[in-house]
Design a protein around this nucleic acid. Sequence first.
DNA 1: TGCTGTTATATATCATGTTATTGTTTAACT
DNA 2: AGTTAAACAATAACATGATATATAACAGCA
Lengths: 163, 163
Amino acid sequence: MEDIIRSLGFLCLGSRLKRIGEQLQADTQRVLDRLEVPVQSSQYPLLAALDRLGPLPVGELAQALGIAQPGITRSVALLAELGLVEVGQSNNDQRRRIVSLTGNGRRLVDVAKRDVWPRIEKAVADLCADLSGPLLDQLAAIEDGLAAAPIDRRVQNAIDAVP
Amino acid sequence: MEDIIRSLGFLCLGSRLKRIGEQLQADTQRVLDRLEVPVQSSQYPLLAALDRLGPLPVGELAQALGIAQPGITRSVALLAELGLVEVGQSNNDQRRRIVSLTGNGRRLVDVAKRDVWPRIEKAVADLCADLSGPLLDQLAAIEDGLAAAPIDRRVQNAIDAVP
DNA sequence: TGCTGTTATATATCATGTTATTGTTTAACT
DNA sequence: AGTTAAACAATAACATGATATATAACAGCA
């Protein structure tokens, strides 16, 4: 069966990028599921931003992550529910709500940084390592690579290879 | 403000691809809005699939577009509501529901193929034309290019350039 | 000081993807 | 032929992005 999105080339590049991105996130989610971490893969960028930049108000988080503010508000509420972040008031501006990692959030990020993120990053980097040439060719290679072995299997293979 | 998704590199490649894809679709949507076409940009791949492959059952549409079957069911219902596609029964298998373009759908696709799609494709192709090198660099160049001039402005500029 | 406009966040609603489940129809055995 | 398994599509429920709008706090100026 012909892959129409692929055939349409640049015309549907947006759909195609979204499709690959969703695939990657779903694969990564399976890695996290196996580790019984209670956070969706899509929430990690927010945690990583707080880790890198320290406590931030909602608006600046939105800027740092390049997504719209209501998305941040929702993610923060979710992560606060899980006890991973907390929101406090700004001293000099009562409108701003400063988001920061809790102790549990801090621990989760530290563990992820040490044990999980490097593996995922390596698996994705390997997937993309030998790519070159025009963008559409690289995307096709990624799609083919993911079809042959999704990220979670690549991570697992790497773990199994350790004696 | 640091762009965290970009800084995280391969680790958040999925989020980044989704983000760029959404940007591209939103830009394209603005092109369509200006033309007062009553269809979301994300529905065009489905119409294009029917145009290219002829009437198809739901499951094969899902395969051709690489998205899950419930997504197709919903899009088909939406496009049927708009009178652009219709669903019929298969002769020999009562489970299959064959989706095909209506007269209006046919006309919409023909106009789009002639007047709209080439312009969008050209704008996106130009955006990506000079890219080379590693994937992440190409993605950064696309992000920068879209920030400098979104697709809808590129299309409009091309139209305005016609004397 | 009090009005006005701006800024920061929250909320509502929508779009579009996902997985899990259900109901029907078809196919395949025994 | 009758039971069981598989395939197809619809539905439910959720995730996560968007835009538009409401609310509250701040800032500037008459």
